[in-house]
């Protein structure tokens, strides 16, 4: 192959075709999606994130949660995700317009978190992050104790202190475990993960 203009042109065009389809198209189409306003209630779908939940995305990214937890529900014709109770409907592009980045994930070493905000309380999340094995027996999730501070109780106990901690890392009498700002933000973000609002492009799917 010695006709070089042809070589260069081919190298350019083959690559450009995929670039147009898989980069430019999503940028122009999916990259411009807006939330939908419910005409009866005036609510936005997906709802906006609170400031602290938005900050929690940074903690989620910094600590690499997505290497074990996905955030996507596949349609019933392609998977058993809905039958397994991961969510009432498949997730679509509009579900991720407030994510930065979109934590779609490629592993389910741990459970999918698309709708984890519907399943657990803040208290549970804090205890679980502090020592997963104590809350979820047999879990291989690493502990995130470095997001918490063990301190001596001085005066009245801290209102945010974790309750009912058990196991080797539970505080000794006279001590308490309080979440850092990062832990609070992360839990606020986890609680915000509720993709149960209706979207016209993704109706709930009936199970067979």
């Amino acid at each position: 192959m010695n006709r070089l203009p042809l070589l260069f042109l081919g190298i350019f065009l083959t690559f450009a075709s995929a670039w147009a389809g898989l980069v430019a198209y999503p940028y122009l189409k999916l990259g411009q999606l807006l939330p939908i306003t419910n005409e009866e209630t005036g609510e936005l779908a997906p709802p906006p994130l609170s400031g602290i939940a938005d900050a929690g995305q940074d903690v989620y990214a910094a600590n690499g949660c997505l290497y074990c937890h996905s955030q996507q529900v596949r349609p019933a014709y392609l998977s058993t995700d809905i039958a397994k109770g991961l969510g009432p409907r498949r997730t679509v592009a509009r579900d991720y317009i407030r994510s930065r980045p979109a934590f779609l994930g490629t592993m389910r070493t741990g459970p999918d978190l698309t709708n984890v905000g519907l399943r657990y309380s803040a208290e549970w999340q804090h205890r679980h992050l502090y020592e997963p094995g104590e809350v979820s027996k047999g879990s291989i999730m690493p502990a995130f104790r470095y997001l918490y501070i063990m301190q001596k109780i001085e005066g009245a106990p801290n209102a945010d202190a974790l309750k009912d901690l058990t196991g080797p890392h539970a505080p000794k009498p006279g001590y308490e475990v309080v979440p850092t700002e990062d832990a609070k933000a992360l839990v606020a973000y986890l609680l915000s993960l509720k993709r149960n609002y209706p979207l016209p492009e993704s109706p709930e799917e009936a199970l067979e």
Partner: peptide, 17 residues
Amino acid sequence: LIWQPILGSAQGAVNWW
């Protein structure tokens, strides 16, 4: 994805491309 991140939903496609 890094300097001027596009909207979340488009990022997955660009990421895996």
